[in-house]
Simulated assay, not measured.
Amino acid sequence: MSSLINTTLKPFKTTAYHNGKFVPVSDADLKGKWSVFFFYPADFTFVCPTELGDVADLYSEFKKLGVEVYSVSTDTHFTHKAWHDASETIKKIQYPMLGDPTHAISRNFGVLIEEEGLALRGTFLVNPEGQIKVAEINDLGIGRDAKELLRKVQAAQYVAAHPGEVCPAKWTPGQKTLAPSLDLVGKI
Rank of each mutant, 00 (worst) to 15 (best):
D75P: 02
K92G: 10
S106F: 03
A156D: 00
L140P: 05
L149T: 14
I93Q: 01
F109E: 01
A82L: 07
A56Q: 06
G122C: 07
E115V: 12
T177I: 04
V47A: 08
D100Q: 02
R144L: 09
A160K: 12
P41D: 07
I105L: 15
F124P: 01
L4D: 04
T172A: 15
N19L: 14
V111M: 09
A119F: 00
A119M: 09
G174Q: 13
R151C: 09
H18E: 11
G174D: 14
T102A: 10
D75C: 09
L125T: 01
L178H: 04
E61D: 15
L4S: 05
L58V: 03
D183M: 06
P11N: 12
M1L: 09
V72F: 07
L118W: 04
T8I: 05
I113L: 13
K91E: 15
Y95H: 14
K33W: 01
V153G: 13
S106A: 15
T123N: 04
T123Q: 01
T177H: 12
V67C: 07
E115W: 05
N108I: 02
P163V: 00
P41L: 08
I188K: 05
Y95P: 02
Y59A: 15
P180I: 01
A16W: 08
S181A: 11
H84P: 03
A104K: 11
P11F: 00
V159A: 11
T89V: 13
T74A: 11
K92L: 02
L65A: 14
G99P: 00
E51F: 12
D75E: 08
P168V: 07
S60W: 00
L58Y: 10
F62H: 00
S60Y: 06
D57V: 09
G141D: 13
T45K: 06
A104Q: 13
H80P: 03
Q175S: 02
T177W: 00
G164H: 10
V126H: 02
S71P: 03
G53I: 00
G99W: 05
N19E: 15
H84V: 01
I142L: 10
F12C: 06
E51V: 13
V185P: 00
V23F: 10
D43F: 00
D183R: 04
